[in-house]
């Protein structure tokens, strides 16, 4: 495992302004020792991917509570790939019905979906485990 700080971009794509969850997660990840960059609200998929590229992040976490996840997540995944960021861990959190969460992960649009009530340590553990197992790490 590389001995360096994991860099995470947390992002709010779409028009949704619910930022309680994203801010709590951002702080939790920072307190767990990660470097966290927060995009702020109302980001287009383009803006999210550009920031991921500029900030050279290992992980992108998307927070969506507006119901637009089935449109936004696949778009962002697609654009990440187009920009050579296929190896970025893509996590999604928010109000995501189970059926949609299943679809997002099984079809490869996201690596993992977290829904309401998940403890912070589950999210941090997910990132640490992935980073440890990452090829080349």
């Amino acid at each position: 495992m590389e001995d360096r700080t994991i860099r995470v971009l947390v992002a709010k794509p779409g028009l949704d302004g619910h930022d309680r969850g994203v801010k709590v997660v951002a702080r939790g990840l920072r307190d767990a020792g990660m470097e966290v960059i927060y995009t702020g609200l109302h980001q287009t998929p383009q803006q999210v991917v550009e920031t991921a590229l500029q900030e050279d992040v290992d992980v992108v976490g998307l927070s969506i509570l507006s119901g637009a996840h089935m449109t936004l997540v696949p778009r962002i995944k697609e654009m990440l790939k187009e920009n050579g960021l296929d190896d970025v861990l893509l996590l999604v959190g928010g109000i995501i019905p189970e059926e949609d969460a299943e679809k997002l992960t099984s079809e490869g649009h996201a690596d993992r979906v977290f829904t309401p009530g998940e403890p912070l340590k589950k999210i941090t553990a997910c990132i640490f485990d992935w980073f440890k197992a990452k090829p080349g790490s």
């Binding site: 779409g14 028009l15 949704d16 109302h42 287009t44 507006s66 637009a68 449109t71 936004l72």
Partner: peptide, 17 residues
């Protein structure tokens, strides 16, 4: 969301919302 943010349904910002 588009209505709350002042966008019409045909705006680029409204896709999926």
């Amino acid at each position: 969301m588009p209505t709350l943010m002042g966008y019409d349904s045909d705006s680029d910002r409204s896709i999926g919302e």
